[in-house]
Design a protein around this nucleic acid. Structure first.
Lengths: 204, 204, 204, 204
DNA sequence: GATGAATGAGTCTTCATTCAT
DNA sequence: CATGAATGAAGACTCATTCAT
């Protein structure tokens, strides 16, 4: 069984991978609605029916793509160390970079959000790690007296939203002023706002 | 212009209005993709073909709906006066209320974002007044020494994004913690963050 | 409205009729499963989509075909008068003739029987008039003392089944001996069996 | 033949048996059309492709299932002895019981009737023993003067049809009145009809 | 102006069958 | 012998858009 089975399994895994990559590619470039099963199988160089060997339907394919991306993004998101303000700047920059690398799917997710509760769930799954990390940091820094007492959960959501949505509107949508706003400038200002919003500012 | 002609025009205007109202209603409740021309004409009590007398296609209808809504929202958004912090809180609350009243179309816009550059434009048009007002306020308050010197444009976008996206994720999507976050609590914390982020905090 | 509307309605009615006739034809010759929407619209010389203007789906089309056939069959089935035995023979012959004229759809119904409860219902609707008439006759003749006391309902079903199923196996299926069994011979024997099974036989 | 070879054959026979049993099971419960090769192999715990090692296709599998069932039914059908009327009642009851035990496949056969001439042949093969036995009995009893002179073949078909179709409509389909018609009541009335239809009734 | 019947392109999904391992 | 991955043909259904009346 071993030789035959493993060879076949390898091939199957390769097909699955091809399809997943193709699906990701098509979702990324066309968006959720415009993606068709036919486009995916064509990109994957498989027969139309093969798609249904690995996915239940389009939504399922998207779910599997998003699951892999979520893992990927989590790996790419590094907790930053050192001076709080520097760490904050580094985090913001890191988020922008990670976001840029996955902007197509982020947008796709947003577009599919209203298609089904399942996709809404994927979106929440993608965001949660970011927001959770913010909330945890606020708590820790708060107990150390570095952060003012605030409603941690709401604040974490608000600050996460600020960075996420700023990134989306500037780096994904063609916000007119986007060209002039370099990443550096954005990182600097967002870090500044965030820092002052919650940190205890030492008197000069 | 004869009597008949003016009567005709009246009737036509009435039909146009019916269709516009119906379109708005359907877009609001079903979302962008799920909205069909048939659903709109049915809601408007018009023949299917009549739709194309007043709109070029679905996107055009959406554009006309959004144009009317944008004006409406602008009217509903009141500049607040008085103590800066209080005015800020009032503004935030006002935004939440306006957002709530138009959440369906806001969502619709987000969903259609991927469909065409035109819809992207509508989105930007809807946001701009809010962001512009923030930028202007920051400039004025900055010149009065009430606000720290910041990159006004970026800050305006960032703060606007914070409120907008917080509102969207909490009041439109089923963010799990949404139930517990009342508007009051949200307004309080967001105002607090905003205030500290840019205002010059008088020493106690 | 009248002229335009009526002309359009006429045309629409014509299309509906074309589709109904085509559907009946295709169901009759191909059977239930083998019938496709495409085959119907092709036979009706309409676009594929036109089908869905008049029918919800294949089953609905079949239902409408069957409804028209049921009415047709009922008209063709004449109650017979005169001497009981002669009337019986005439009834049997009449049933055979009606059955022959509609054998294709009868078979189709049988084939689709297991597809959905709705089709089962159509089948019962088609049979009912025949069985009901038998039951009524048995009751009347029983009260006149011409028929032995029997369980009217069961007997009606049994005798109806005998004629129906005999007709099906001999005139529709290629029962080998079918060639030799002429309608005359079948009518004679079935009438004889039926007559003796329930009638009070006068002593010679 | 080596040991290995015989072992192989045994295993193959076992697989064949598994598939046959599974096929029967699936046909019985799902009906002809709804049965898929995948469902059969799944029920048989075999690979999809294995099916084609033992059957040419779905119809072939059905043919093999029916062949085994036909033999089984024939064994279960016992010729009855004793007083003609009692024997008749026993036969009818016996038929009902056999029918009930195989209703799923009977129905399946009926459903597939339109699919191919081969299935039509299976149907006729299943019926033939029953009808033949009736014909033979009628001949024997006729020669003994217990049965009136009738067209034996036609009468056998007719009486067989009566019992078969009554059974089908009452015990397999949801004929509305089915609940109230117990087997006992059905046996009694059908026996009564049959008896009077062909037997020479001794004067009281 | 208004109507609504007709069109047909576009997608999803299922499943019998093949074949390399 | 057995496996199960891959194929691709086939069919149902939707809906934006046109156009004769």
């Amino acid at each position: 069984m071993s030789d035959q089975a493993s060879k076949r399994k390898e091939k199957a895994a390769a097909t699955a991978e091809q399809l997943l990559v193709a699906a990701r590619d098509v979702f990324e470039t066309r968006g959720y609605q415009a993606t068709t099963v036919g486009a995916i199988t064509e990109a994957a160089n498989t027969a139309h029916g093969t798609f249904y060997l690995y996915f239940k339907n389009k939504e399922d394919a998207f779910a599997k793509v998003m699951a892999s991306v979520t893992a990927e993004m989590y790996r790419e998101t590094q907790p930053q160390e050192g001076d709080p303000r520097e760490a904050l700047a580094a985090s913001t920059r890191n988020f922008f970079e990670v976001f840029r690398a996955h902007r197509g799917l982020w947008r796709c997710l947003l577009e599919g959000l209203h298609t089904s509760p399942a996709i809404e769930g994927m979106w929440l799954d993608l965001r949660r790690p970011f927001v959770d990390r913010i909330a945890r940091d606020l708590k820790v820094l708060g107990s150390e007296g570095l952060v003012r007492p605030v409603d941690t959960d709401v604040a974490a959501h608000a600050l996460g939203s600020m960075v996420e949505w700023f990134a989306f509107t500037h780096f994904e949508l063609d916000e007119p002023s986007a060209d002039e706003v370099t990443i550096d400038r954005a990182v600097e200002t967002l870090t500044d706002l965030w820092y002052h919003s919650v940190f205890v500012i030492p008197p000069d």
